[in-house]
């Protein structure tokens, strides 16, 4: 895809939203939905469109947990760190995943396959501990289940 079509698509997403500051978060969400993260370029574009300094947009983007400024991995893993999950051992699950993948929270593996984040609560406390991989829920986990899950994903990733 050439640079110009990419830019055109970005503008298209941004213009789909009303021209007003209170839609800033919605615009950021729409851009992140498409690209997986907020690039420097996209922040410049949004700044032009809303006539708002880049610093303000950066301020909003870094305030909320949802936004990423770096590209995510092919498999985005979110580990729930809510109370129920904590009581049922989510700290161990997080350690195990980090160890298996060799990355820390907020990081992306060198091959670009995995990124690991925590989330305050996924609201699926009754099947704690819970993680999501690309939005799909996996509940009632333990260290062993997580290990085999990660191994499966690694195989899938190598296959492509």
């Amino acid at each position: 895809m050439t640079q110009s079509t990419e830019e055109f698509m970005l503008d298209d997403i941004i213009r789909g939203c009303p021209h007003s500051r209170d839609y800033l978060i919605s615009i950021l969400q729409a851009v992140q939905d498409r690209y997986g993260y907020l690039s420097r370029e996209s922040i410049y574009r949004i700044s032009d469109y809303l006539d708002l300094p880049e610093s303000k947009i950066y301020g909003v983007a870094t305030f909320y947990n949802q936004f990423r400024l770096k590209p995510p991995g092919k498999f985005q893993i979110h580990v729930c760190r809510g109370t129920a999950c904590h009581v049922k051992g989510s700290a161990g699950i997080l350690d195990t995943i980090g160890r298996e993948l060799g990355i820390e929270v907020g990081g992306t593996s060198k091959d670009g396959l995995f990124s690991l984040d925590t989330v305050a609560c996924l609201g699926a406390c009754s099947i704690a501990p819970v993680i999501t991989i690309n939005g799909k829920f996996y509940g009632r986990l333990d260290n062993k289940k997580v290990q085999s899950l990660v191994k499966k994903l690694k195989r899938q990733g190598d296959g492509t």
């Binding site: 500051r21 969400q29 909003v60 949802q66 305050a120």
Partner: peptide
């Protein structure tokens, strides 16, 4: 419907209002 972006403090009503206005919550 307005989608939140993940901030616990937005449960506080004045922070929630700031967030709807497109600012830091």
């Amino acid at each position: 419907v307005k989608k939140g972006a993940g901030a616990f403090v937005c449960g506080e009503e004045t922070a929630l209002i700031a967030s709807i206005e497109g600012r830091r919550g």
